[in-house]
């Protein structure tokens, strides 16, 4: 018991737990739409485009003599990620369901662009990673503020527009025939996903945020039938694995992001194995 008190009174751990709770709750909301639209790898793709954005921001900052030179790195990442997400939507629309090809273009283009541009700027990719590196074990107070704002946006868009977004994700043709602004809604999901990844990767790391959007949803899909219950279950699971995984690494010296992701995947495997037992009832 004293151990838990110790954990809960450690300010560093308080912030980390709060962020884990928020990200675990909000990331699966947007992830539910991504899984529905077969864009599960979007998070990773956005992460790579953000690298290009950092390099671009760096080059532009140097060219314009902005002080400090890297002031545009993070805005560059956000702009590139949002642009990449919009490009994905355009490619998907033009190629009728070519979502995975669009993702591949984003993914490889992002890596190559980043490496190339940072080379021109005279650095190596390690310099890029510094801007995008985040870890849930060292969350600052401003990170908490940023995360709260992001999660409010995510929950607002993801839950507030759920009927419309669900219709679009489920059957775009039907949604269009009912008069919904399909393209605007598609772009809205992509942009919110891009913002989530670029903001959260600096706080908790790319691995954690992109996995948390998808894995809890994958688990929830195994057991729930409706879209709404999948989303709610995924939110609960995301929160649980985040908080439990982080608490474990307070005692066992493991990388927290990786621990949380592995925990979520173990839950997936266990549910997958146990599902026939429930189905027989």
């Amino acid at each position: 018991m004293t151990g838990i008190t110790q954990m809960l009174t450690d300010p560093l751990m308080q912030r980390a737990l709060l962020v884990a709770l928020l990200v675990g709750l909000a990331a699966p909301v947007i992830g539910t739409y991504l899984v529905q639209r077969k864009l599960s790898l979007l998070g990773d793709g956005i992460g790579h485009v953000a690298l290009t954005g950092v390099a671009l921001g760096w080059l532009v900052g140097a060219a314009l003599d902005v002080v400090p030179n890297d002031a545009l790195a993070v805005p560059g990442a956000v702009v590139a990620a949002v642009a990449g997400a919009v490009v994905i939507e355009v490619v998907r629309e033009r190629t009728r369901g070519g979502g995975d090809v669009a993702l591949a273009l984003l993914f490889y283009g992002g890596i190559a662009g980043g490496v190339l541009l940072i080379g021109i700027a005279g650095g190596t990719s390690a310099n890029l990673v510094g801007y995008l590196f985040g870890s849930i074990s060292t969350v600052s107070t401003s990170d908490v503020v940023l995360t709260v704002a992001l999660c409010a946006l995510l929950l607002g868009v993801g839950l507030g527009l759920r009927p419309a977004l669900f219709a679009v994700s489920h059957d775009a043709e039907f949604a269009r025939s009912t008069g919904l602004p399909v393209r605007a809604l598609n772009v809205a999901i992509a942009v919110v996903a891009a913002l989530t990844v670029t903001v959260a990767m600096r706080v908790v790391g790319l691995l954690l945020v992109s996995a948390l959007m998808i894995v809890p949803v994958a688990v929830a899909q195994l057991v729930s039938r409706s879209f709404a219950s999948t989303m709610h279950l995924a939110m609960g699971l995301g929160t649980a694995v985040c908080v439990v995984g982080l608490a474990v690494t307070y005692w066992v010296p493991l990388a927290p992001g990786a621990t949380i992701v592995v925990l979520a995947i173990v839950v997936y495997l266990v549910v997958l194995a146990a599902r026939p037992l429930f189905a027989r009832r």
Binding site: A126, F133, S137, T138, T249, V252, A255
Partner: peptide, 14 residues
């Protein structure tokens, strides 16, 4: 240099 510090490690350092 890119290893993610674990909360347990940070506790030790504290």
């Amino acid at each position: 240099p890119e290893g993610e510090p674990s909360p347990a490690r940070l506790r030790e350092i504290r």
